[in-house]
């Protein structure tokens, strides 16, 4: 490599990379959207112990959490068109982005179903009993009592998932999608200044994940305000307000296995 490190390239590359930021964010948003729907559908049979569907959902979760997302990407990219051909749907003309979003969505769905399951199980059973004892119906008890608490429990883990997804979108370059990483590689090849491009890329990822984390943290505090109304809360808000990370408290029910795996 016959070139010197030139810091000005970094500042040059950042705006260029930012032009494709929307693609990365679109993949994240699409994946999380699909993931929420699929995840809920996959979690319900296991929560209510529906005979056959329960097994199916188990296999689905196990597969998507047991194989690397890169392999899944290739699998769907090459396999989905053939699979859908069997039912006479032609998807060969669709852009690659479609396959990427579907794969990331299904991958997120597997994790989200685990998060939902863990969160609902973490809500004390006495809460449901109390709801029944004041005359609520099954649906009312779920919607008014269990769900809000479960969401509050799930949000920190969900936030981790969103950040993990953001980082995983970097793999979309393998299928030739021109998102941040793909674009960075092109810029690097064009200018032969690889190191500067990747530093710029890292800065952008860092900034985006930092911003996302901050937004999700605000969201988390808002949802969990029913949990603590004491001095500690005021302190935490103060830290948050000043831009510090509040001390994360452990929630044993959702920690452990249910934390989404980091990859990529």
């Amino acid at each position: 490599m016959e070139y010197g490190f030139d810091i000005t390239y970094i500042f040059d590359f950042i705006p260029k990379l930012l032009q494709v930021l929307h693609l990365t964010l679109a993949i994240v948003a699409g994946a999380i959207g699909i993931g929420l729907i699929v995840g809920l559908l996959a979690a319900l049979p296991r929560l209510y112990k529906v005979p056959v569907l329960q097994r199916l959902s188990q296999v689905y979760t196990s597969f998507f959490r047991g194989t690397p997302i890169l392999i899944q990407l290739f699998l769907f990219y090459y396999g989905l068109p053939e699979l859908l051909k069997l039912v006479y749907i032609d998807v060969t003309k669709l852009p690659v982005l479609f396959f990427v979003i579907v794969t990331f969505g299904l991958n997120a769905g597997a994790t989200i179903s685990e998060i939902i399951r863990a969160a609902v199980t973490a809500v004390d059973r006495g809460q449901v009993e109390a709801a029944y004892s004041v005359g609520m119906s099954g649906y009312q008890a779920f919607a008014r009592i269990v769900l809000p608490q479960a969401i509050a429990i799930a949000v920190p883990v969900f936030a981790n998932l969103v950040i993990a997804m953001l980082k995983e979108t970097s793999l979309a370059f393998a299928l030739g999608v021109m998102e941040l990483t793909g674009k960075a590689q092109t810029l690097g090849t064009l200018t032969r200044h690889f190191m500067e491009t990747y530093i710029a890329l890292a800065i952008i990822y860092l900034a985006v994940s930092f911003t996302l984390e901050r937004i999700l943290l605000l969201f988390e505090r808002k949802l969990q305000r029913h949990m603590r109304r004491d001095a500690a809360d005021a302190e935490r808000r103060w830290r948050l307000w000043r831009g510090r990370k509040p001390m994360r408290e452990r929630s044993p029910e959702v920690s452990g296995k249910e934390v989404p795996r980091y990859e990529a």
Partner: peptide, 13 residues
């Protein structure tokens, strides 16, 4: 805060 792929590429180059 950054993807594993970026670390690999940074190290590699």
């Amino acid at each position: 805060g950054t993807p594993m792929l970026v670390h690999l590429l940074l190290i590699y180059f």
